[in-house]
């Protein structure tokens, strides 16, 4: 039962939303799918005085194809992303990550913008976006006298997360969209996402996204990104210069990249580290298999 009073506004123009957010940034929370914020309010963990709902703002929704990227509006739901043909074609890694968020009802309602801005280190999207080098489009009200002036900036995903559930968004600034660079064709690039949780719909203990490609030299290159192990997701470049990775090589690279892993009641630090290594390596293995399959089918 939500105890604290608040007012709720649901503007249809972005400028109005940003103005409302800028008016009292500390007391205002933007609302999107509500799958995290509403339970947090019910549990008494969050008590905003103002809620600004972003769902009815056209600029923040929709999925659009750009020449080199797919622009996914912040209010696109996990279900939209998991099933959209353009995302499936150009960013299947992200679609796979979306398909494994929570359960059907959560995917029908929860949004990518909300997930990114909440920055829970275990959220499925974060490693996928990190592996894909996504760019966050952030919007805020511009200072000064112009009532409807807004400012937009693009933040590479690698610079977006500032700490545990913390981002570099300024007060009153929101995630407006994510630009996800198009993956290469399956003949040139393999990708895989892995989620490890106690039960399938739970928040993961760790999740991993891998992206590998064969370079013209025949050598493999790629990266694996891990969520849930550290306060922010971490991207690990895989050792280059070889046609394949030796057994244990990926695990070692992951272990080295993760210093001081988090712990909680579901997983202590050393176990979490090991799971990051195991599932990261499995994601890489699956990505390599996908690449092999792609090459064969070419």
């Amino acid at each position: 039962m939500i105890a604290e009073r608040f007012d709720y506004q649901s503007p249809t123009r972005l400028a109005d939303a940003l103005r409302l957010l800028a008016a009292d940034p500390d007391g205002t929370r933007p609302l999107s799918g509500g799958m995290t914020l509403v339970p947090m309010m019910t549990l008494g963990l969050a008590a905003p005085e103002h809620i600004v709902d972003l769902k009815r703002i056209p600029e923040l929704g929709g999925i659009h194809e750009e020449p080199d990227a797919v622009r996914i509006g912040a209010t696109a739901t996990h279900h939209d992303i998991a099933t959209d043909p353009r995302v499936r074609l150009h960013a299947p890694l992200l679609a796979d990550a979306a398909a494994l968020v929570g359960d059907v009802q959560v995917r029908n309602r929860g949004t990518i913008g909300g997930s990114i801005a909440h920055a829970d280190p275990a959220a499925n999207y974060l490693p996928a976006l990190l592996a894909l080098d996504a760019v966050i489009e952030a919007r805020a009200k511009r200072g000064g006298l112009l009532r409807n002036a807004t400012r937009s900036r693009r933040i590479p995903i690698g610079e977006f997360f500032a700490g545990l559930m913390a981002t570099c968004l300024a007060a009153g600034e929101i995630v407006a969209a994510v630009h996800v660079p198009k993956q290469l064709a399956a003949t040139h690039q393999g990708a895989a996402f892995r989620k490890f949780a106690r039960v399938k719909g739970n928040f993961p203990i760790v999740c991993a996204a891998a992206l590998v490609e064969r370079q013209s030299s025949g050598e493999r290159a790629g990266c694996v990104a891990i969520g849930g192990a550290l306060p922010i997701p971490v991207r690990i470049a895989l050792p280059g210069g070889q046609a394949a990775w030796a057994a244990g090589e990926v695990e070692t690279a992951i272990r080295q990249a993760i210093d001081d892993p988090m712990s909680d009641a579901n997983a202590s630090a050393d176990y979490r580290l090991e799971m990051a290594a195991v599932h990261g390596a499995r994601a890489v293995e699956a990505a390599c298999r996908a690449l092999d399959d792609g090459e064969r089918s070419a």
């Binding site: 709720y8 509500g34 509403v38 809620i51 279900h79 959560v106 029908n108 309602r109």
Partner: peptide
């Protein structure tokens, strides 16, 4: 669970005004 605009959602996570 209810269907909101044709898809299932959990109505304990939706504000009534929303």
């Amino acid at each position: 669970t209810v269907m909101l605009n044709g898809r299932c959602v959990k109505s304990c996570c939706v504000l009534a005004v929303d």
